[in-house]
Amino acid sequence: MSFDVLMLQLMTGLSRAAVLFIVAAGLSLVFGALRIVNIAHGSFYMIGAFVAVTLSVMIGGTTGFVAAIVAVPLLVAALGAVVERIALRPLYEKEHLLQLLATFALLLVFHDLVRAVWGERPHRLTAPELLRGSVDMFGAVFPRYNLFLIGAAVVLAIALWALMTRTGFGRDIRAAVSDPEMLGMVGVNVPRLFTGVFAFGAGLAALGGILASPRTTVLLGMDVDIIIQAFAVVIIGGLGSLVGTAVGALLVGITFAMGIMFVPQAAMAMVFVVMVAVLVWRPYGLFGIPER
């Protein structure tokens, strides 16, 4: 196994991690603040991709792609706000099992909705000319779009960090993560904060769906595929922790890519071995908040 092949594989692992981070960050925030295991998070990922396809076809070209990246996460965030208000808010005081079932039901509803609107056939989201093709790297070629993905994830990570540490919204979220019951007492409008966080998480999922799409195929079922991996990421990183999500995404992405190289048929199993090892060592995840 030569060095350049390893480096190339590392890069493919990083691009996988990039998408996982963007999606799992939303999942982790929603769990951290609302304490809801949102299985329908994958639906927002899928809806984001499908709406982006329609919008970018309507507008066309680079403008279409950029418009999709800007507008679709906002649209899906709005959808998320409505969903939170109607389907989840009545359930906060109820059993967790009910909440889980509700988000599971949402996953099924959105799946059928997407099928009704876009049909069974796969669709394609085309990247702008600028991001297509490949660049030379380690004596081989590497897709330009993957570099863009890695860059986008880094920029987003910095932006999220700034949001969490430098804004009031971020401060409230952090407060909700560490002690939601105190939050109401100090005068924060908790229901509104929860709606905001849920919408924000949905927007991140949609953004992940849009960014992931040009490299692959937009089709029904991408919701469930992503949610399983995103859960592995947040379980490893610790629910509610942004740094944990980043580390979790890197671990999952790179473990998978290297696994393919050395133990092809057990690559996904290796990801779950890592997950189990983390759970045994730190049951609340690498950067999760331990039980108080």
Binding site: T12, R215, T217, F256, A257, M261, A267
Partner: peptide
């Protein structure tokens, strides 16, 4: 959805 690692291998 992401066959890159397989292709590189």
């Amino acid at each position: 959805a992401d066959l890159d690692p397989f292709i590189t291998a």
